[in-house]
Simulated scan of single mutants.
Amino acid sequence: MHKPLILALLLALTGASVHAEDANVVSPQVTFVTSTGYWEESGDPLSGLDPNSAQAEPPSEPGNADVARRGYYKLIALRQQDGTAQIHLQQIEATPAGPEVVSSAELEEFSSLKAYVTDIRPETSTGVTAQPGMFATVYLKTDPAAREPETWTVLIDDLGDIKVERASN
């Protein structure tokens, strides 16, 4: 009599753990992510990221010189224990096997502010840009009690040079 009840309970718990694993695909510390812009090259990853930096991951092997590498950029806000955020910039390569991280670095300009990120938005919500590079807007507060956030921009030009600055409206 009790065996069907125990079996039903075990099946329910097993199903619940599968759903819990699915919910953990993205870390709870990730508060905002945007993928935007694009890049094409046949050589080195982002010229603005220092490969000797402790914050940067080593780039993947350069591709065959005959085959152009291409992909997109991703900005990620990670919430820290104190509520402030770190912003990471990734260069993602679109490969036949799926997306691969080419380079990843923390943007120290934001970390030094000890800011609370309230939003990250791409230049366009269509995901289509006419020129190589990236433009995204980061909204943040350095004082959590502030009514309005500050607006900052992250710009990557067609050469891969990165510029982070406060927006001037």
Rank of each mutant, 00 (worst) to 15 (best):
P4E: 13
L7G: 07
L9C: 13
A12I: 11
A12E: 06
S17P: 04
H19S: 06
A23M: 08
V25M: 04
Q29S: 14
T34F: 00
S42D: 04
D44Q: 12
L46Q: 02
L49P: 00
D50Q: 02
P51K: 13
Q55L: 12
E57P: 01
E61S: 12
P62H: 05
P62A: 06
A65R: 08
V67F: 14
A68N: 10
R69W: 06
R70K: 15
K74C: 02
I76F: 01
I76W: 00
A77D: 03
L78E: 04
R79M: 08
R79W: 03
G83P: 09
T84A: 09
T84Q: 12
A85C: 13
L89P: 02
I92G: 00
E93W: 01
E93F: 02
A94P: 01
P96A: 07
A97R: 13
A97M: 07
P99M: 11
P99D: 12
E100I: 00
V102P: 00
V102K: 02
V102G: 00
V102C: 04
S103H: 10
S103A: 15
S103M: 10
S104T: 05
A105K: 10
A105R: 11
A105Q: 14
L107N: 07
E108L: 11
F110N: 03
S111Q: 11
S112N: 11
Y116Q: 10
T118P: 13
T118K: 15
I120N: 12
R121S: 03
P122T: 08
P122A: 11
T126F: 01
G127F: 02
G127C: 06
G127Y: 01
T129H: 07
G133H: 10
G133F: 12
F135P: 01
T137G: 07
K141L: 06
T142I: 04
T142W: 04
T142Q: 12
P144F: 05
P144W: 04
A145Q: 15
A145M: 11
E150T: 05
